[in-house]
Amino acid sequence: MRLNLRYLLVPLLFLAFNFSSHADDAVILEQAWISEAPPTVKVMAAYLTIVNSSDKDMTLLNVDSQQFERVEIHRSIVENDTVSMQKQNQLIIAAGNRLELKPGDFHLMLFNPKTRLQRGDQHSLRFYFADGSVFETNAVVKRKNLQDHSHHHH
């Protein structure tokens, strides 16, 4: 039995090592969330921070999700008081840098959810980079966190 365990341990350790190497990967996806919307809304937004901890630039080409028909990378731009959303064909995250996708700026557009989204739900998003690497993260559905309320006590 003891011998058997030892034989089992080697591949297990190997697996664990492989798994943990994922943590010091080139890209870390942080705090992904989907902005909760009224049930009738067919287009939603997701936000997150993409951290490039590698020493080379990373180019994000595509994002997809099983929960949505299509995901696009967009940026809201205000010019002459008019806001327009501009589709981004790629996002370059410079070596050692982070890019924050946030309300009123870069964001992911999620088209036609396959089921109704509820607050607290988690949906997986996959990120495809130009070097062939793919990263996945779970985005939680929540209402936009409005900080201005914390200053008020009446």
Binding site: V43, S76, G104
Partner: peptide, 17 residues
Amino acid sequence: YTNCPDICPITLSVLAN
């Protein structure tokens, strides 16, 4: 417009707040 995913929900949430 209702299918505006980014700016509209932010602005309306702030207004409601």
